[in-house]
């Protein structure tokens, strides 16, 4: 039998899951090398009923998590090919660091200018969403290399607001 391997990061652990090509109905798979019999029924996109040893689990995909019995379990698919690039990209205490919007919102205040020296944890931008204001802080001490937003701008989650170097 031909199995495909998927690496899943969940709860701080990397798990090796090996699945057959066809994942509908009764399947035989391996989780960290241990054989597991399961029955899979796909109800809709991102929604399955999974039966393992008589126990039934209703599982929903929601972005970076699956929801089972109302509980969220965050996970990530690990692509081994991209592992090499990561160590550098994650950044240390020295490289330039971006401060990104943690949520969609509106910029109500920009507390720094390009060229300013900032301390670690110093507030740089205030974003408002749903009547709540949140002050975003610099992850490290340094100089403001770039201010990418202006007051009243609408930003998306993950958008770069300020770069510290």
């Amino acid at each position: 039998m031909n199995l495909k391997t998927i690496w899943i990061e969940t709860d701080g652990k990397r798990r090796r899951v090996e699945l057959p090509e066809d994942t509908q109905g009764a399947i035989e798979c391996l989780v960290d090398g241990v054989a597991l019999s399961a029955d899979v029924h796909t109800a809709a996109a991102g929604e399955i009923s999974l039966i393992v040893a008589g126990r039934q689990w209703h599982c929903l995909l929601d972005g970076d998590a699956i929801v089972i019995n109302g509980r969220r379990y965050g996970f990530a698919v690990d692509d081994p090919r991209s592992l090499r690039g990561r160590a550098g990209a994650a950044g240390g205490a020295t490289g330039p660091r971006s401060i990104k919007a943690p949520m969609p919102g509106r910029v109500v205040r920009v507390l720094v200018n390009e060229g300013d020296e900032v301390a670690e944890h110093q507030g740089v931008v205030i974003i408002e969403a749903m009547k709540m204001q949140n002050e975003l802080k610099s992850p490290r001490a340094g100089r403001i290399a770039r201010v990418a937003v202006a007051v009243d701008a609408t930003v998306d989650s993950g958008e770069v607001l300020v770069v510290v170097e």
Partner: peptide, 30 residues
Amino acid sequence: EEDRVPEDVVALAAALLASTGRRDEVRNGM
């Protein structure tokens, strides 16, 4: 909480949804 789903079930469900999710969501134009 005590009644957590077993870890191997979480991993299996995640792998199943991740491997089929992409194809299905594209097909459904989601």
